[in-house]
Amino acid sequence: MPTLLRRLRRRILTPDVSQTRLSTRGFHEKDHASRHLLETVGETFLYGYARIAEAATPADAVTALENVPARFRGFAYEGATMACAVLDGLPFGRTDNVRRFLAGPGDPHVYMAYVGVGWAMARLPRLRWSALYAPDPVLRWLVLDGYGFHQAYFRTRDYVHGQRRDTVVPWRPDAENAYAGNAFDQGIGRALWFVCGTDADRVATTVEGFAPQRRADLYSGVGLAATYAGGADAGELTRLLHRAGEHRAAVSQGSAFAASARVRAGLENTHTDLATGVLCAMTAKEAAEQCDRTRPAAGDVPGVAYETWRSRLRDVFAVVS
């Protein structure tokens, strides 16, 4: 495809950056620093998306993605994978962009990549969902996590204030759809960190407004976002853990997942250790090691292996805390 046509494709497919502004979304602004952080996350996501939308192949975007500062690079890869999935879902062109991306530069960022596929799911018609590539039977639930995040981020009135929950998402013929609502809520929980502007008390109050049976999954998503995106100091994170009450271990589990994602990609930073130090009572690398140790092999356990993994981690942190 000629360069001019690829640039036109980027302009057509890439959402406007104004959609990442807290004021546009109507999200809470805790302070200038948190607003700048969250808006930079959104801008970086769209930067990664645009690089793929304009590239001849996913590999051609790698240099631009790797030049993103380490704190935000994972979000660039998340956006890049969304673009790959959107291209796969179009009724023309190649349909193996995500496969090639995950087999190459996207592999260290596999957690974020699967979430990015979920963003694409929210933007594609259902009849094209079968084109989405998410082969790992354990991690593929992160696709529905990404889908839930997207809905809460862009349709906040319905999914946060109205507490709508998509419990059945027919995205794969072999998916255990009874678990779809749980994965969806984990994504909503991550989005709450953005909707509430990284304000730990506001996040906790919002979670407490949801039905009790949804709160563990929501808090898991909150813990992941609070660790991966950041924006809260030790005191705020301590209050979040305290407010979570019986769901403290869920917050810790989400935090450990975030640490694992950053450590795997070589993107851990001082905030990662700060967050896991409070939420997991261990370093980011130690939390990531717990994820590696407890992850089940697909087929080795009955039911949803992903939830078995999360449950094992909650048990770890129930003892630690």
Rank of each mutant, 00 (worst) to 15 (best):
M112Y: 11
A261T: 10
Y228M: 15
L102M: 12
T294A: 02
D96Q: 09
P108T: 12
R9P: 08
G303Y: 11
A191N: 00
G148D: 01
T156C: 12
R126P: 09
V17Y: 07
V117P: 05
G148W: 00
R21L: 15
F75G: 02
D201H: 08
L218N: 02
H109T: 04
D300H: 07
R123E: 15
F184E: 07
Q19F: 11
G104E: 15
G93Y: 12
G209D: 00
W309I: 01
A33M: 13
L4G: 06
Q163A: 05
V301S: 07
Y111M: 10
D315E: 13
G93I: 05
I52V: 14
V251G: 07
R264L: 15
D233L: 08
Y111L: 14
L102I: 08
T156G: 04
R264V: 09
N177L: 14
G221C: 14
A55D: 00
A59I: 08
A80C: 10
H150M: 10
R239Q: 13
A297S: 13
F210E: 03
A275M: 01
G26S: 12
D233Y: 12
F257Q: 14
G303I: 08
E246R: 14
Q163G: 00
L192N: 01
S311E: 14
L37V: 09
W309Y: 13
A204N: 04
P212G: 11
T14L: 13
A85T: 02
A178D: 09
P105R: 11
F210V: 00
L237D: 02
W141Q: 11
D292Y: 02
L37S: 09
P15Q: 13
P105M: 09
A287W: 02
V138G: 12
D145W: 06
G254F: 12
A76G: 04
H161V: 08
G181C: 10
L46Y: 03
P2W: 10
H32Q: 15
T156K: 10
M82F: 04
G221H: 06
